[in-house]
């Protein structure tokens, strides 16, 4: 069963078309990596999946619920779709544990105790339990991103969206975040990841989607993609990214 179904999405900013008839899907338990040169529309596409970005034509369904349907309760849907951002986007005025619990309490209606228990367990899992009462500004970028992943997991999401989760990090912090993501993938979490980390893609991805200028140019099994990319653009992209 397809958990995320993207059908013929097109999107314009005024006159400028950022997405052109994009279609792909993510099955339950599948890990799909979306890559492509900057400005190719990959971040925009992933933000369409939980309706953070509106699109003009086409449709997206998540777990069978259509985003274009005006009756869809978007906040409720989003609460079940985890998202991790390039710049972490922890809430700077709340402690780490408050970041973990606020949406559990205010959105899911969990009790404070339940939210705290869940929050502590997840912090432990990402190895940050001793940072519980610090503020985001007091943590390193890698630590902040691990908290952000834990915050999303606290909502018991049915799938996770990652929007370039390592590209704002100093190189020495990339691996601590990727390790968390790999573990998550191995547990069977459904994931859609915009990333340039091809090592990660090789290791855990089922499929790779390659985008260029707002179009999905390639959508293939990872072995196929890395072994023999069909499009010239993808070949060029891979040789550039692998040569450094």
């Amino acid at each position: 069963m397809q958990l995320i179904e993207i059908q013929n999405i097109s999107k314009w900013y005024g006159e400028f078309q950022v997405l052109t008839e994009c279609s792909t899907s993510v099955a339950k338990g599948e890990v799909v990596v979306v890559c492509g040169p900057s400005g190719s529309g990959k971040s925009t596409l992933i933000k369409c999946v939980n309706a953070l970005e509106p699109f003009q034509t086409g449709n997206i369904t998540v777990n069978g619920i259509s985003l274009s349907d005006k009756k869809t309760n978007l906040p409720k849907l989003r609460s079940r779709v985890g998202m991790v951002f390039q710049n972490f986007e922890l809430f700077p005025h709340m402690t780490i544990i408050e970041n973990m619990t606020i949406a559990q309490e205010k959105v899911l209606g969990r009790s404070k105790e339940d939210a705290l228990t869940k929050g502590h367990a997840l912090l432990k899992r990402v190895g940050l339990v001793e940072q519980t009462n610090k503020f985001p500004g007091q943590l390193s970028g890698g630590q902040q991103q691990r908290v952000a992943i834990a915050r999303a997991l606290a909502m018991d999401p049915m799938c996770m969206l990652f929007d370039e989760p390592t590209s704002a990090l100093d190189p020495e912090m990339v691996n601590e975040v990727l390790d968390v993501m790999v573990a998550l993938a191995e547990e069977g979490m459904t994931m859609m990841c915009v990333t340039h980390e091809m090592g990660f893609a090789r290791k855990v991805a089922n499929r790779v989607v390659f985008m260029d200028r707002g179009r999905i140019v390639e959508d293939a099994h990872k072995d196929e993609f890395f072994g023999s990319p069909r499009s010239e653009r993808a070949q060029e992209f891979l040789s550039k990214i692998l040569s450094h």
Partner: peptide, 23 residues
């Protein structure tokens, strides 16, 4: 504020008024 803060609030399932109030 960084634009992503609003997105992060919405992505957690907050409504727009909740995003303003809490984030």
């Amino acid at each position: 504020l960084p634009r992503g803060q609003k997105s992060a609030g919405l992505a957690l399932g907050f409504t727009l008024p909740q995003t303003y109030r809490f984030v």
